[in-house]
Design a protein around this nucleic acid. Sequence first.
DNA 1: ATGGTGGTCCTACCA
Length: 268
Amino acid sequence: MRLITWNINSVRLRLNTVKRIVKKFQPDVLCLQETKCPDDQFPFKEFEDMGFVSTKIYGMKGYNGVSISSKLPITSTEKKKFCRKNDARHISAYINCKGRKIKVHNFYVPAGGDEPDTKVNKKFKHKLDFLKEAENWFTKKRAKNKDLIVLVGDLNIAPHELDVWSHKQLRNIVSHTQIEIDKLLKFQNSFKFIDAVRFIHGYDKKLYSWWSYRSKDWKKSNRGRRLDHIWISKKLLPHLKDVSIEEEIRGWKRPSDHVPIIVDLDLS
DNA sequence: ATGGTGGTCCTACCA
């Protein structure tokens, strides 16, 4: 099973790009974040034409929004609200693959604003509260849950030193502060998730999945961050075959500021 | 040096 996660930054604006990506990489499952599309305006027909028999969405007007599209049957869907908000930041689905049921969680974690101080910045507080709630949710699930789980999405945190272009210069910048990193790793550990990207590629090289729009030449300056993640439950580890970050897509025409990440799982 | 750019949707908000 091949799964792609991508912060598309508007599904309607980048329909042709997503078609190109699906054609090139042939994913079985596609998880999108920041679809920025109300549910009644989602381009279902175009996703069907790409070969996805099922597309489940949780969208809203203007911001946020997540979706899971699959060429394999989806049996059930859940949309969880965090922090008592209806802000379309999570959707999950069971996907049937070769007689196995895979649970896919797709997250769009709040970005958190600019000031890394919960007292003056309520967006930063929201981000930390969101992570805490996610941690608690998976802690409760851990004891009894036997699912094969893939958790993906734009988690808006670059947890390791080589997940940013300069650890020293970004340690007080939202997305790489110690308090966020601690919260993210606690969330990850709540279900003993494995960071599939680092498992495959190791911890000793810089890896980015996002480059700001606000630079003249993203490639030349290469000031990226690894904000997008693929985590797998321990039971899936024997099935993990490969992970790739498709950097070159940042250089395509009218790009998202994030690039797709691909994971290959052998479920035969 | 406190910008810069790019989304949605109409004026400001979000990243």
